[in-house]
Nucleic acid binder design. Structure first.
Lengths: 183, 183
DNA sequence: TGCACCATGTAATTAGTTACATGATTAC
DNA sequence: GTAATCATGTAACTAATTACATGGTGCA
């Protein structure tokens, strides 16, 4: 009995609270803002929007630009209530599956040198992620985000950066450990 | 074209490198060692074992204890090769979906006070996770794990602890920020 | 004239959880 | 005798990705 099952719908509802958007806009929005800790595919977004509309949680505000067809969705009061309800529910414990962790864990059975490579890649990727969050932070400072949301966005980005930084530091320290251990 | 598709099989192969085990043993083993960053269900494990056996990556070493039926699987050379191949492949970037991050991100639309509760719960849960990793570390020190694996296990646990600690510190700092911001 | 981007969607497939069903053994 | 734990599995379902299919718009 999963109480808070499909979370995709809540991401959609949450983003539509800020602004009415199309499926395409949502995808971009997700990639640009929450991309560091949440991702969605079109194959998931469009059917979700359809379903939310059928349930009356969002409303279609038909807005085609010229000949190009374009469906913009706005959140309804019912939608806002549903989102608030979900937000109030306790978050389920993080259900992580870290592939890099697994590959290190089984390092004893790996061809020599590959783990070192994985770790170097992890350092790079994690540092890049920190930088990406920095860019989002810059964009936020440059305006256009309402005060109400700003605090929360900053807090979330802070989480992303702390975790990414922790990962980077771990990978560096692991590389050092391996260097000192090797014969 | 997913190169490294079902990772469950590699967890199974990896654990069987240390010791031949039954499906039940594997589940326990996963929960106790890699549980912090990887989890599997019986519904996934038993079919996977069956399939691995069909492909010759593991072999059934029938070993029923008394009346109780019990199927113990051992890794084969082909299995070891398959694992080594997967370990050598670059790890795909972490595909995280953090529910707590989302709930904070949409904090502006939440009933007042609930985010604070989520953050407190996060502090507790993360601290508990650090402690659980400490327990695993203790168990490792108490022996029975071969030297070859020990280094790698320790490194992996270190990652788990660093990330959990980062999360705890973030939640604490977020709580402080909210306290100072509120009116 | 062709590429990059805007825009929407479906079908097939894979991955994974949860619930269910069954039964033996061990420790209290 | 009864509860916890050992032990194996299937069926139904949910979630989510990937690949495919289509077409408009703006610009160099």
């Amino acid at each position: 009995m999963s109480i808070s099952a499909p979370r995709t719908r809540f991401v959609v509802l949450g983003l539509l609270c800020s602004e009415a958007m199309s499926g395409y806009d949502l995808k971009r929005s997700i990639d640009e803002t929450v991309g560091g800790f949440w991702q969605e595919s079109y194959g998931q977004l469009y059917p979700t929007l359809k379903q939310l509309r059928a349930e009356g949680l969002v409303a279609e505000t038909a807005a085609s630009r010229g000949e190009r067809r374009r469906t913009v969705y706005a959140i309804t009061d019912t939608g806002r209530a549903a989102l608030a309800g979900w937000l109030a529910e306790p978050a389920q414990p993080e259900h992580t599956r870290s592939e890099i962790a697994l590959k290190v864990f089984f390092g004893a059975w790996a061809p020599s040198g590959v783990v070192t490579e994985h770790l170097s890649a992890t350092v790079d990727r994690s540092r890049a992620q920190v930088a990406r969050f920095d860019a989002v932070l810059q964009a936020l400072a440059a305006g256009n985000v309402p005060r109400t949301e700003l605090v929360w966005w900053r807090l979330t980005i802070d989480l992303g950066q702390r975790v990414a930084r922790a990962r980077a530091e771990w990978a560096e320290s692991a590389l050092a450990t391996l260097r000192s251990t090797h014969d």
